[in-house]
């Protein structure tokens, strides 16, 4: 199973409580550029939310130091001690959910902690679980095979 932040775009009212909660939690400051969830305005009263779906795992595949891994709950995590700051993960993310702050080495992303879901006044965010798709499993299996056969 994969734990993830489920996004209800239609319920979002654009109040930015989530970005405020997130940046305060991880960066001790209120700054939407340092939030792991992004609120995009799409015309009057309509919003699109961006946060990692924890499923595509392209960043896990791309990371040259294996600083990005999948934890036991199926959440994609970054180990900043292993990260060399190349930002390949930022480039490869198809929905721009992997973010970085200019001048800061390690990128950041939603880890489904649920803090924003608790503070959202409109019930637009929710921590949920989903089945692992075959595509999500593929990367892990490819490398496991290589390690086994090669050594």
């Amino acid at each position: 199973m994969i734990k993830y932040l489920k996004l209800h775009h239609d319920k979002c009212i654009g109040c930015m409580t989530c970005t405020s909660t997130c940046s305060k939690m991880y960066y001790k400051e209120e700054n939407p550029a340092k939030s792991r969830i992004v609120v995009q305005e799409q015309g009057i009263g309509k919003y699109h939310l961006v946060a990692c779906d924890q499923e595509c795992r392209k960043c896990v595949e791309e990371c040259p130091t294996q600083a990005i891994t999948v934890n036991a709950q199926g959440v994609v995590m970054i180990n900043s001690k292993l990260c060399v700051g190349c930002l390949a993960c930022v480039a490869v993310c198809p929905i721009n959910a992997m973010r970085y702050f200019p001048g800061q080495s390690t990128p950041f992303k939603c880890i489904a902690c649920g803090a924003c879901a608790k503070t959202c006044p409109a019930d637009a965010l929710e921590i949920a679980e989903k089945e692992e798709s075959p595509q999500a499993k593929e990367y892990i299996e490819v490398t496991a095979h290589l390690r086994k056969e090669h050594k």
Binding site: E62, C86, L87, A88, E138, Y139, V142, T143, L146
Partner: peptide, 14 residues
């Protein structure tokens, strides 16, 4: 060639 691997010869070569 083995596919889906970040086969750069230095970090950050996508």
């Amino acid at each position: 060639f083995s596919q889906k691997l970040p086969d750069g010869c230095w970090y950050g070569c996508t």
